[in-house]
Amino acid sequence: MSSTILRTATRYMFPPLLVFSIYLLFRGHHFPGGGFVGGLFAGSAFSLYALAFSVSDARRILRSDPRDVTAAGLALALISGIPPLFSGHAYLTGTWWMLTLPSGVHLDIGTPLIFDIGVYFVVLGVVLTLVFALGEEQ
């Protein structure tokens, strides 16, 4: 497709879409959102880019192969289950660390968040693997 309107719009839309996908990811613990929908959102941002320009352009701005993204996400999700084992709990039990930054801001980092980031990458990777495969058929 070579529509100037779509291409120009995509150039402007692409960064905010990715930022919004990350916002959805971090919002997910207490509100609607999470890794799945965030990953889907990021995936549709890249799909839009592939539609407006070409699949090879989308691959180029993703920088790594979507299958690597999937593998990294799976690894992250797997690792997120390990910390509770050290404190004698079952695999995947939610574990939290409270951090206080020098500026006085409290930050709760937990294994569910790491799991969610893993899900984000898995969904992004799988969606893009399929979309790129379909796109390159043409």
């Binding site: 299958r67 690597d68 999937t70 593998a71 990294a72 799976l74 690894a75 797997l78 084992l85 004698g88 709990h89 079952a90 695999y91």
Partner: peptide, 21 residues
């Protein structure tokens, strides 16, 4: 609490991740 019943599920997944990488 033991991890043993989950290992037959987790180990192939670990292997798959390594193979994909």
């Amino acid at each position: 609490m033991t991890l043993l019943p989950a290992l037959p599920i987790l180990l192939p997944l670990c292997g798959a991740v390594f193979c994909m990488l």
